[in-house]
């Protein structure tokens, strides 16, 4: 984790704000005058993790760039729920082209800014996991290898939600979607498939790759802020639960995201130039089952219990914990 957690202040830096913290130690989201880059009136479902993640990330970018931001958006939920004619929820200059080209469009914006000498204005491209790991992957890879001055943010809700919950290359093992139904001998998405885009991004050797979660706002904002202090291609992959597609309680969006992190299934880490340089330790490790059981898309693993699948998914989490050294190396600080 690239910032020092504050302890002893009742909640330290775990809550969004805290009146006991110095102003600079509170999140951007705690500010009364935060940008609300994505404003009220948007049509996201109740408890939408992506709407939340987008505001978290973009408000932090706005803060870091002194409001000098242009955003490019791939087609998807975020685009559709934010900008149906005649109402837009965006408070920032925002451009939507098509599903698979957001990284390239953003490269074009960055190139135009360079041509015009307006490099104080910064560019963010954003899309869901389908736009990122699947249809827009070619453009994304191109943007990476050219090291264009773009921060690409993937809001990963692990399937094509806008079209009604179909499998993407980011859909996790054994998850139900409408194209990986919970029927047959291996219900849900098969094991050992899918893409790990942060690792692929790292393989491009770009200046910064980071993962973040809506469940850890301080971590997310720190990474976004850091990303804006760097020029060149940067990639942040944010885990954003989707109550609709995950069949989870809208009130539990953050809880679910938190359990993904705390179980080790969604590791929070940072890589610079292709090398993992930091990770955010798990605070209180939980078995993957606690995460899975909250989501109807994994219901078939519990009725009857599929011990083999549960063990395999636990092994994935354990592997992450080992790979990224996610358990705290020092005991929790006391007085």
């Amino acid at each position: 984790m690239s910032y020092q957690r504050i302890k002893f202040y009742q909640t330290g830096t775990f809550t969004v704000g805290n009146r006991l913290l110095e102003e600079g130690e509170r999140t951007v989201q705690a500010q009364k005058d935060r940008t609300n880059s994505l404003n009220s009136g948007h049509r996201a479902c109740q408890g939408c993790g992506e709407a939340l993640g987008a505001r978290y990330a973009l408000d932090a970018v706005m803060r870091a760039t002194h409001n000098q931001l242009v955003a490019v958006n791939a087609t998807g939920c975020l685009e559709v729920f934010s900008s149906p004619y005649p109402e837009s929820a965006w408070q920032i200059p925002w451009l939507h082209s098509v599903f698979g080209n957001a990284p390239a469009v953003a490269s074009g914006v960055a190139a135009a800014l360079r041509a015009k000498g307006k490099t104080d204005i910064r560019v963010v491209a954003q899309g869901g996991d389908g736009a990122t790991v699947d249809i827009g992957f070619g453009c994304l890879s191109g943007m990476f290898e050219r090291n264009d001055d773009v921060l690409y943010i993937c809001y990963d809700n692990e399937a094509y939600m806008n079209t009604g919950v179909q499998r993407s290359g980011a859909t996790p093992a054994r998850a139900w979607t409408n194209t990986t139904q919970a029927v047959g001998t291996e219900p849900g998405n098969p094991m050992n498939v899918g893409k790990n885009l942060p690792r692929i991004a790292m393989a491009h050797g770009i200046p910064l790759v980071a993962t973040a979660s809506v469940a850890d706002l301080h971590d997310l904002e720190t990474k976004v802020t850091k990303a804006m202090s760097i020029r060149g291609a940067r990639y942040i992959h944010i885990h954003v639960p989707c109550p609709l597609g995950w069949k989870s309680d809208p009130a539990e969006t953050i809880k679910v995201a938190r359990l993904a992190v705390e179980s080790g299934l969604f590791p929070l880490f940072e890589a610079e130039g292709g090398v993992v340089t930091d990770r955010t330790p798990i605070r209180k490790q939980v078995p993957v089952e606690q995460y899975l059981v909250l989501q109807g898309r994994f219901e078939h693993l519990f009725s009857p219990r599929d011990e083999q699948a549960l063990a395999a998914i636990q092994a994935m989490a354990d592997r992450n914990i080992h790979l990224y050294a996610l358990l705290p190396t020092e005991p929790a600080m006391g007085t």
Partner: peptide
């Protein structure tokens, strides 16, 4: 990386006034 990318870049650039 592709023609799709090429025109997409220009969509961004043109929207930025270039």
């Amino acid at each position: 990386e592709s023609e799709f990318g090429a025109l997409s870049v220009l969509i961004g650039a043109s929207a930025m006034g270039a």
